[in-house]
Design a protein around this nucleic acid. Structure first.
Lengths: 241, 241
DNA sequence: AGCAGGTCTTGATATATGTCAAAATGCGCG
DNA sequence: CGCGCATTTTGACATATATCAAGACCTGCT
């Protein structure tokens, strides 16, 4: 794994006292089990915007829980084309793809200054054998990722450009709200190019869709600051009508 | 779960004597552990073409291993649009999406007469706590599904029609070969409409791509019988150039 | 074997999105 | 604070794929 020098500051930090506990690993544990969980993740790493958390082909050793900031993941084709496969934020677990072959199959790049907790996977497996609720939770995290991916396939395979953007914005809104942030005031961490890659569109198409939404009074957009004005109509747009 | 009457024939069957063992659950087990695994999957169910293995919203209790035949999985949008998310064949595990919420988020339909082994998930979790290599394998199966989904996102998000079809055919070819079948003689189980849904294309586009490939000497197609003539050139088409 | 219904192919045309280009805007850095 | 570069917006045009439509082809059933 590529860990830039700025990331060498590693701090001991306890899951039991983490304010993301309810989002990240919300398992119901006894005091003793919680103490064992604290042994699991003993290191926190820092990343600056543009730093790689891991690259394609890197050896897999640990999952990572995002403590602050955000990352994008992407896969590459031999001819250089890339596809952004996800935008991850605080409380989310990153690196599940690599369990399959012990090698990372996508790469993860910080989109801003970010911190992650390292979760050594071998330890996590031992612990989840001993703590059924942790085992259950690990399974749910992986399954949730599969469900998320299915949703993106639906989006890429059968939605039109504006439907895709609406779905994307509603998803961001919902995740923002889940963190106690505004459901309507969004600060985009990613460029039009990156949004386009994620949604299978060109950046110009993304930009035009934003402009069109604004003309229609669905939102107000100023570069990366977006205010969602009409959530219900955005929802009908994505076919949940 | 919806189990049609024809499926009520359930047979006791042992993993230890199953000829798909190397594909399905290739874990390295002691004799004692193998005996325990045999307790896991005690029932086999039959399905005819068009039967549902499960529907969206069904309660989740078991994963299923496909013993023979094939299934398609699909997700639906409220307005009726559908997206085929996968074509599964013998040895593959189906139902991983439902672990997340204990409800199925996609539906699975048999594409021909098929048999599945039921794997009660609660038992699987107990067993995988006791048998580390089984735990590891379960994790790998789930991660592999995530990797597969990433590949489809890449396909849907950044490949053109003919590249998508080439990638699809090469994937079928490879899986056929993994089962000891021909890598070049393919008998498609799915219609052009279903292929189109999977690849984010209309059936006419799929049909035209087939015709074009045939004109170019890449393959010979006659309805659902496809013979791949030029595998290397098909590979260059999907951008592995 | 022959018919019927579904599936597949092919053609003509429409359209959503991509491409190319230029101007406007925002933002980090000195 | 303002310069300069990257990002975003907008326009004109190109094109890949969708749509609509007709005919051909399988395949299963009587």
């Amino acid at each position: 794994m590529m860990v830039p020098s700025s990331a060498n500051t590693s701090l001991k930090i306890a899951c039991s006292s983490c304010n993301l506990r309810e989002i990240c690993l919300p398992v119901d544990l006894s005091g003793n089990e919680m103490a064992r969980l604290d042994e699991l993740s003993n290191h926190k790493h820092r990343f600056a915007a543009g730093d790689y958390l891991y690259r394609i082909g890197d050896q897999f050793k640990s999952l990572h829980a995002i403590r602050s900031g955000s990352f994008k993941t992407r896969v590459l084709q031999a001819d250089g084309r890339e596809q952004v496969t996800g935008f991850l934020m605080a409380g989310e677990i990153i690196g599940l793809d690599a369990i399959s072959t012990d090698l990372h199959t996508c790469e993860a790049v910080a989109m801003e200054n970010s911190e992650v907790c390292e979760l050594p996977f071998a330890k996590l497996e031992v612990l989840s054998r001993e703590i059924p609720s942790l085992q259950r939770h690990l399974h749910k995290i992986m399954s949730r990722e599969i469900v998320r991916d299915q949703g993106i396939m639906l989006l890429l395979g059968s939605m039109r450009a504006e439907e895709r953007l609406a779905a994307f914005l509603l998803n961001l809104s919902q995740r923002n709200a889940a963190h106690g942030l505004s459901a309507t005031q969004l600060k985009l961490r990613m460029s039009r190019l990156e949004i386009g890659s994620y949604l299978g569109l060109k950046l110009e198409t993304v930009s035009r869709a934003f402009s069109h939404f604004q003309e229609d009074g669905l939102l107000v957009v100023k570069a990366r600051a977006v205010e969602l004005i009409d959530l219900p109509r955005l929802r009908t747009l994505v076919g949940k009508s």
